[in-house]
């Protein structure tokens, strides 16, 4: 009960602050009530303001799945009316999963250059949402180096990813290089809350297109949930492994040692 009352207070405070536009020169970015609600919610924890305790934290985290359903229901009713248009865009929806591969080309060399070893593979093969964590866990074990990598990005995504995606979408939109629909569709690559923050920022900037933007974001998010994992298994992970070995030899001058999981198998 205390949990829900705290949430009511947070939500009302956040909504009363309202949208805040910041002019960046190239264009404006928009901060949304949902972002303040997230930050204020985090601030209530025992580490900062000590308003919430273990009980509320565990309660909130166990309720999240149910609460998300309400938003998903709303997304369903947003996608339905625009479905004919979205189906016409399905080539873009499917092919944009390949956008992830560009990340590997930059992410793996960067991670190895920074001194990460096989953590790099876990960290840079995807945006590290739940299905990717499960995949790495199954393939290498979550207590190994690859597991540490994927968990590191997963935690970063949970704590700052939502705000990060919201502001990033806003900045790309302000740059004027992309059509808002393309940016909304790209927002689907992350978790549901990352997508929501990105689409929300875009909707606040282009209120006339708000419905279409949310529908495209939600459709892309659903599809990523389905085909994103296949992408990881078939392309992203093998490509990360291959690139890791190349970059490792380049940096250290010797062959990359195999993963702990593979070594353990050999020793048996």
């Amino acid at each position: 009960m205390k949990l829900h009352l705290i949430v009511v207070a947070l939500v009302m405070a956040a909504e009363f602050i309202g949208n805040i536009s910041i002019n960046l020169g190239i264009g404006k970015i928009v901060l949304l009530p949902m972002m303040y609600a997230l930050i204020m919610g985090t601030l209530t924890c025992p580490r900062f303001l000590k308003i919430t305790g273990e009980k509320e934290i565990m309660g909130a985290s166990s309720l999240l799945g149910v609460i998300l359903m309400l938003l998903m229901a709303r997304y369903g009713t947003l996608v339905g009316p625009t479905l004919p248009k979205i189906l016409a865009s399905s080539p873009a929806l499917i092919l944009q999963e390949f956008g992830n591969l560009g990340t590997i080309l930059i992410g793996i060399p960067l991670a190895v250059f920074l001194g990460l070893k096989r953590e790099a593979i876990g960290a840079a093969h995807s945006v590290a949402r739940e299905p990717n964590v499960a995949l790495i866990g199954e393939r290498y074990g979550l207590d190994g180096a690859e597991g540490r990598g994927v968990m590191g990005v997963y935690i970063a995504g949970t704590v700052i990813g939502t705000i990060f995606f919201g502001i990033m979408a806003s900045i790309f939109a302000a740059s004027g290089l992309f059509h808002p629909i393309a940016l909304a569709m790209a927002a689907g690559v992350g978790s549901a809350s990352m997508m929501t923050a990105a689409v929300g920022s875009l909707a606040a900037m282009y209120p006339d297109m708000a419905k279409d933007l949310a529908a495209y974001g939600a459709a892309s998010n659903m599809l990523s949930g389905l085909d994103g994992l296949y992408m990881s298994v078939c392309l992203a992970l093998p490509m990360s492994e291959w690139l890791y070995k190349k970059v490792y030899r380049l940096k250290y001058g010797v062959e990359a040692p195999p993963s702990e999981a593979a070594q353990a198998k050999e020793n048996n």
Partner: peptide, 26 residues
């Protein structure tokens, strides 16, 4: 739909506390 997200992210914010220690160590 934005007003539907605000409560969700308020709960999510409270739940983040669970991961905060690990995050601080990354």
């Amino acid at each position: 739909f934005l007003q539907l997200c605000t409560p969700l992210l308020a709960y999510a914010g409270i739940a983040i506390a669970k991961d905060l220690d690990v995050f601080a160590q990354s």
